[in-house]
């Protein structure tokens, strides 16, 4: 493992056993989160983003199984840890913010109680813990934090609730924050507020962020590095400028073209990617995107391409950008 990476996933494959047989939900996924970086993961629903997060925190559903690969976090392999060891990492070294803050906050406990409860690992008295909670709430921008500590989640607005969820996730000063579409439920002005707040906190605390979203604008604005996933594979990764200015994989190119924010001319007919996401139970023999790719040729249909490009830099899984051996 590269010591400058907080999180390093190598060759991760995960499958689910279902009544339709075994579904290979993730295949040979590589991903690295360098210390102090914000890494964005983009892809359509069903591309394996959530499965990947659940594998990292080892909370896959009972029918899911890691087939191969490794997940190294701060030097140790998460997949080889015992459950008590894993518990000491979840919520302390790695924490999460989910899409809907109402789900991660308990509606019948005041936010002060919840923020004191999550400090159960600290050997401090309760008034100290409350003071720390107030400081953290102030840092995420909750006005009158001290007075509002005994309020319940429903007394806060949507944007404030999401900031409270972020405060709770950052209370333990984790080295990795996993944010799973934290701004989808918010309007544009609040979305921007949350993004800037995350950026500030990341800089002052020095943690790394793994940011999952399918909002390309948010990814472009917030992230340093981007990973594009499709059908359970990483199809491209690179810096945010590589991905948005020089996308190599046809899927990434199409995805960016499809964003209505991109089109200056007003049009009633929106561009789309024709075809359907591949059925994981019946994977194509060649490239995973070949069925929908407008550039697919001969070997795309029978040989799966490898992730190729600069080592540790901009890479894509495509026959067009990788001439391959012997050509």
């Amino acid at each position: 493992m590269n010591p400058s990476n907080v999180l390093e996933i190598k060759g991760l494959s995960v499958e689910f056993s279902t009544e339709r047989g075994r579904l290979p939900a993730l295949r040979n996924v590589d991903l690295a989160v360098p210390a102090g970086a914000i890494v964005g993961v983009v892809g359509e629903s069903g591309c394996g983003k959530s499965t990947m997060i659940h594998s990292i925190v080892r909370l896959l559903s009972p029918n899911g199984r890691v087939v191969s690969g490794s997940i190294h976090f701060e030097g140790s392999d998460l997949l080889g840890m015992t459950e008590p060891e894993m518990r000491s990492i979840r919520g302390d070294r790695i924490s999460m913010v989910s899409q809907d803050p109402m789900i991660s906050l308990n509606p019948v406990l005041s936010i002060g109680t919840q923020m004191v409860d999550i400090q159960y690992r600290e050997k401090l008295d309760k008034s100290r813990k409350r003071a720390r909670a107030v400081t953290m709430l102030q840092r995420v921008g909750i006005p009158d934090a001290a007075e509002r500590l005994d309020d319940y989640p429903h007394q806060f607005s949507g944007g404030m609730r999401q900031r409270i969820a972020i405060a709770m996730a950052l209370q333990a000063e984790p080295s990795l924050l996993i944010a799973d579409e934290p701004t989808t439920a918010l309007d544009a002005t609040l979305e921007v507020q949350i993004i800037h707040r995350l950026q500030e906190l990341q800089q002052s605390m020095g943690c790394s962020i793994l940011f999952i979203s399918h909002h390309l604008g948010v990814i472009a604005e917030l992230c340093d590095l981007v990973v594009v996933m499709y059908g359970g594979e990483v199809v491209e990764n690179g810096t945010v400028r590589d991905i948005f200015h020089r996308p190599m994989h046809p899927y990434t190119q199409k995805l960016i073209e499809c964003d209505p924010a991109r089109m200056v001319e007003i049009t009633r007919v929106q561009p789309t990617i024709p075809g359907e996401v591949p059925d994981l139970a019946r994977l194509p023999a060649g490239c995973i995107f070949s069925g929908r790719c407008h550039l697919a040729f001969g070997k795309c249909h029978d040989q799966p391409p490898a992730l190729a490009g600069q080592d540790g830099g901009h890479r894509a899984r495509c026959h067009l950008t990788d001439p391959g051996p012997g050509t």
Binding site: T189, V192, G217, A220, E221, F244, A261
Partner: peptide
């Protein structure tokens, strides 16, 4: 403010934002 907050899918976009303060 709403229109200027709309994030653009371009990491080098220069957006002139009208920032709102305070809470809803």
């Amino acid at each position: 403010a709403l229109l200027s907050a709309n994030p653009e899918p371009d990491p080098d976009a220069r957006i002139n934002r009208v920032e709102l303060h305070g809470e809803v």
